[in-house]
């Protein structure tokens, strides 16, 4: 097998982070959100509602292990143990399989809450572009969902679709967005209703002499038009923000902005952690609610 065939171009970087502005968690209310998605898992730890640490990694075949690996990596170097976390919310595709979670909350509610924290209370329309689904969400100034629409029928418009194209074209997933702008004229989009058909179409275009950049531009454009139709069905209201892994792909984000004629808000944090962050904030609210009831 050649080196090219062995390389997995779809693999994105896994990482963890600790907030240097919060030196110690002791004495604070420690809450966690664990988002076990179809493709990636994130764990976020908040201290008194402030982002303290997080980790983002690929989801394995076993959701409970993925959740545990993510929270352990987020706690690395903090001195925290699972027993020190006051309340944990599990969210995402595998939310019911987070063994140490106190409650499961849907990723739709968690993304809205997380986006409210990340982008501010002006966010009204949110697009979450996940690994295997895509959601258009409306929320109020407190991050509470007022309407949502989800598409998980096929991989078109999802991170997995982009991974398929990165592998097909032997382009690192992190370079796809920038490369897609290296075209003289914007090509027509490829099929936006099915990744399998889009891949077949792309193979034909490569054979017809299209450059990798042009094919990527056609696919980014297809993905943008696909998710814009979701947003339009749910209704657009400003401000607009994007979460999930695809929010890091400027090739898709810029094309969505162009089609909608609006600018997405600039994220203050990693867009992939929005769901887990929302979970940690939900956890804080739930602890405070139960404390009020106890009084």
């Amino acid at each position: 097998m050649s080196e090219n065939q062995q390389k997995e171009y779809w693999r994105w970087k896994e990482y963890n982070w600790k907030n240097p502005e919060i030196p110690d968690w002791k004495g604070g209310l420690v809450t966690a959100g664990v988002d076990v998605g179809s493709t990636s898992s994130q764990a976020v730890i908040c201290v008194d509602g402030q982002l303290y640490a997080y980790a983002s990694m690929r989801t394995g075949s076993d959701s409970p292990s993925s959740a545990l690996n993510a929270i352990n990596w987020a706690m690395e170097g903090t001195g925290l143990t699972l027993q020190d976390i006051n309340f944990t919310v599990g969210t995402g595709y595998g939310r019911v399989n987070v063994p140490f979670a106190n409650k499961a909350v849907t990723e739709i509610a968690c993304h809205a809450r997380g986006a409210n924290f990340m982008y501010g209370p002006s966010v009204r329309t949110l697009l979450d572009m996940g690994g295997q689904d895509c959601k258009a969400i409306h929320c109020d100034d407190k991050g509470k969902v007022t309407s949502f629409l989800m598409n998980d029928k096929c991989a078109a418009g999802t991170g997995r679709g982009m991974e398929v194209f990165a592998n097909l074209l032997a382009v690192s997933i992190e370079d796809v967005g920038d490369m897609s702008f290296n075209v003289e004229t914007e090509p027509d989009p490829v099929s936006s209703t099915c990744v399998v058909f889009a891949k077949t179409e792309a193979t034909g275009l490569l054979r017809a002499g299209w450059s990798k950049e042009k094919v990527l531009a056609a696919y980014c454009s297809a993905m943008a038009s696909r998710v814009v139709s979701l947003l339009e069905r749910n209704g657009m209201e400003l401000d607009f923000a994007i979460t999930g892994g695809i929010a890091k792909n400027p090739g898709v984000v810029k094309r969505i902005e162009k089609l909608l004629g609006v600018q997405a808000l600039t994220p203050k944090y990693d867009t992939q952690i929005a769901g887990a962050l929302g979970g940690a904030l939900f956890a804080k609210a739930l602890v405070e609610k139960s404390a009020k009831v106890a009084k």
């Binding site: 007022t146 949502f148 629409l149």
Partner: peptide
């Protein structure tokens, strides 16, 4: 909340 279930 308006919950939309379905697909395109």
């Amino acid at each position: 909340m308006i919950a939309n279930y379905g697909y395109k």
